[in-house]
């Protein structure tokens, strides 16, 4: 057992569940309500200073039919120790909303926009939750498993390029 994980478990006890992970990686699961507290602890007291990535996962069609359907993963890295940890957060099916972490890491700003864009998961408290990769008139969320891979949408609205009538700002 590595030290940061021990400290996390000592601090949060049963609110953090250790998941089985391959290749010596560390993965824990926390409830959405505990998310910000846990990652803030990991950043400020366990030295995980970099939010590497934020991954949305859609489990629709999985043989075990897990609920909730969506999960968001936070990859954290510690520069000084070289350790990495993965925080899995199930997304409530009824609200599809998680708290935003952008005040802890500027990186979360665009990464949360990406998860919103591709999965339709909202982040409460995000300053500007709008699409980042898809066109602003795109309908649906492309990485959901029920979005057909072959569906095309023709989106070439010229007004998107006008400075005065711009629906989005980063």
């Amino acid at each position: 057992m590595d030290a940061p994980l021990d400290r996390l478990l000592a601090r949060f006890e049963e609110r953090v569940r250790v998941l089985p992970a391959l290749a010596g990686q560390t993965a824990v699961e926390v409830a959405p309500a505990d998310l910000v507290e846990v990652v803030a602890f990991l950043r400020d007291e366990a030295g995980f200073d970099v939010l590497l990535d934020l991954v949305g996962v859609d489990r629709l069609g999985h043989p075990e039919a897990p609920t909730p359907r969506f999960e968001v993963l936070y990859h954290l890295k510690s520069l000084a120790g070289g350790a990495r940890v993965r925080v899995h957060v199930p997304v409530p099916d009824d609200t599809l909303e998680l708290p935003s972490c952008w005040r802890l890491w500027h990186a979360a700003n665009w990464l949360e926009r990406e998860v919103w864009d591709l999965f339709g998961i909202r982040f409460a408290g995000h300053p500007n939750l709008c699409r980042i990769l898809c066109h602003h008139r795109f309908e649906g969320h492309a990485l959901r498993r029920d979005y057909p891979i072959g569906r095309r949408q023709r989106l070439d609205a010229p007004e998107a390029f006008l400075l005065t009538d711009d629906p989005e700002w980063a």
Binding site: L118, L133, I149
Partner: peptide, 12 residues
């Protein structure tokens, strides 16, 4: 900055 002009859905 506005990104996404080259989005090709590689992950999909």
């Amino acid at each position: 900055p506005y990104v996404g002009y080259l989005h090709r859905g590689v992950e999909k």
